[in-house]
Structures are given as C-alpha cells and as structure tokens.
C-alpha cells in the first residue's frame, strides 16, 4: 500500500518558502527597528525573499502531475477554502509579487522600485503579514493532515515558524556578507535573533518529540524513528547538533564578542542553520507514519 506521497520536491518547497518568508521578516524588522545597525542586512533579506519563495513554489508545481502538463487545471486550485493548499496558493500568489516589489523598493531598483519606494511602509506591513502567513501555513499544511498522526499537532506550525525565522535570518546574514563583507562586524547584533529563534525551535522540537511519544502509537513510532530509529543519525547530527547546538553556541559567542569573531565562523553558523532547517523539513516529512488500521 502507498505510504508517503511527498518527496524531496515538497521538502525543498517547505524549506525555501520558510527561508524566503523569514528573510523577508528579517529585512522588514531590520529596516523598521534597527536601520542604523545594518542597511545591508535589510537589502540582502529583501533581495533573497522573492526568489527563494518563487523557486520553492516552482518545486511545488513540479511535484504536480496533471496540473503540470495541463497547467490550466491550476486555476481549480483555489476552489476549496477548507483546503490548506487553496490558502497556500492565495497566500503565495499575493506574497511573491509583494516580496519582489519590496526588494525593488528598498533597493530602488528600476522605475517600479523608485515609484514603490513611496509606499515602502505599506509594503512592509502587508508583506510582513503575508510572510508570517507563508511561514505559518507551511506548518499548518501538514499539521491538519490526520492521515499522519505525527504531523497532526499544533506544535508543527510553531516549529516551522521558528525554523523559518532562523533560516530566514541566516539567509539575510549570508546575503549581507556577500553584498558587503565589511558589514559582517555589525552582524553580531543580529546573532541575538538566532539565539531566540533557535531556543524556541529547540524547545518546540523537544516538546513535539516528548508529546508524540505518548500521543498515539503512530506518532510514537515516528518520534522513535527520529530519536533512536533508522533516521536517528540524521536527526541528531544534522538537526540537533549542526542545526541547533552549533549555531546556538556560535551565536552566543558572536553576541558577546561583539564584532571580534572570525567571519568564517559568522557565516559558518548561518550555513549550519540552513542545513538544520532543510534537514528538519526532510526528517519530519519522511518520518510520517500512517495510522495502524487493522
């Protein structure tokens, strides 16, 4: 019998949509709250957000079958408001253009950007709302699935949201280092963001595992697969150590050693967060176990 229908394309989509939405939120937060800390981070975040979400959405479309080779069928995708995919299509269709427009406005790219610059605050408010909706919806998408008990918990959107914010911040920080390597000294202020998001992610992940172990037989089977079963090497190495512990420690050091940490370590911490974020999505999707029916 078929067990799981979703593969790497959906995993990549969940990761990229989260990272793109997080990068947008990082850019908006940086531009609104701390414009004097780093203009580069806001620019990098805004430039990364649209393309990341767009590529993620392309993965989602590539995973379709009849909808891919008969694209007009995709118009039906907004038919059922009780489906999270319908909501996802609406949110993505609004967020992707707003994200590109925001990137153009913040960086004053092309005529459109110079015109949109006048509405920067509006774009930040609307786009911020849509970005949070995008990051949250990727979690709700799988949390409403009662065909996979491990996913079927309100902890899932919270976990995905925390992971989206930390991977988005990592994207913005790596982007800032690429745009202007000298800005890396000022990045230390943002390391606090990693500390907060990774703490939340770690705590929620722990709660999810502990609660799943007692919630139902199937959820326990998934959680066991992650902590001591066939997927456990990947879970402990990629999600826990590389994805959470290492960048968490590095970010604390970075925050206290303001501006003195080696730039390879600053960028390294962010790359670790990205590896962890992708691994988290993959392991959660692949550890899904169907209800025992007989």
């Amino acid at each position: 019998m078929p067990e799981s229908a979703w593969g790497w394309l959906i995993v990549t989509y969940l990761f990229l949509a989260g990272a793109g939405a997080g990068a947008f939120v990082s850019a908006v937060a940086c531009d609104l709250l701390a414009p004097d800390w780093s203009k580069t981070l806001a620019r990098a975040g805004s430039l990364a957000a649209g393309p990341l979400v767009a590529v993620g959405t392309a993965c989602l479309v590539l995973d379709l079958e009849a909808g891919l080779w008969q694209p007009w069928r995709q118009f039906y995708l907004v038919s059922n408001l009780s489906s999270m995919i319908t909501w996802g299509v609406i949110i993505l269709s609004l967020f992707i253009p707003v994200a590109f427009l925001y990137a153009a406005a913040l960086n004053e790219l092309t005529v459109v950007g110079r015109y949109a610059r006048k509405y920067l605050r509006h774009l930040e408010v609307v786009g911020g709302f849509l970005a949070v909706a995008t990051a949250g919806y990727t979690g709700v998408l799988i949390a409403v699935v009662n065909g996979v008990p491990f996913w079927n918990t309100p902890a899932m959107p919270v976990l995905f949201m925390a992971s989206a914010m930390s991977t988005g911040l990592a994207v913005a920080m790596i982007g800032a280092a690429i745009i202007d390597i000298t800005t890396i000294r000022t990045m230390s202020s943002f390391a606090l963001g990693h500390v907060i998001f990774l703490s939340v992610e770690g705590l929620v992940l722990m709660l999810l595992i502990f609660l799943s172990l007692t919630r139902s037989v199937e959820a326990a089977a998934s959680a066991t697969m992650l902590i001591s079963g066939s997927l456990s090497p990947y879970f402990w190495a990629l999600v826990v150590i590389v994805g959470i512990v290492v960048p968490y420690v590095l970010s604390i050091v970075e925050y206290y050693e303001y501006g003195k940490m080696h730039k390879a370590l600053v960028v390294g911490a962010d790359l670790c967060v990205l590896v962890g974020g992708m691994s988290l999505r993959a392991l959660i999707v692949f550890s899904g176990v169907a209800p025992h029916i007989v």
């Binding site: 019998m1 229908a5 079958e65 009849a66 891919l68 995919i85 699935v145 065909g147 169907a290 029916i293």
Partner: peptide, 25 residues
Amino acid sequence: RCVGCKYCIEACPYKVRIVDHHEGI
C-alpha cells in the same frame, strides 16, 4: 479537476489512494 498534488494521499488515514502516473491524477 485533479492536479495530482497528492495532498489527499497524505490526508487519507487508510492510505487507499494511488497515483495514476499515466493520467497524472
């Protein structure tokens, strides 16, 4: 109408739905 997104396969607790790769649904 089916686009082949396979969300229904994930949602079905009984796992009795299959993809027809020929029709893509």
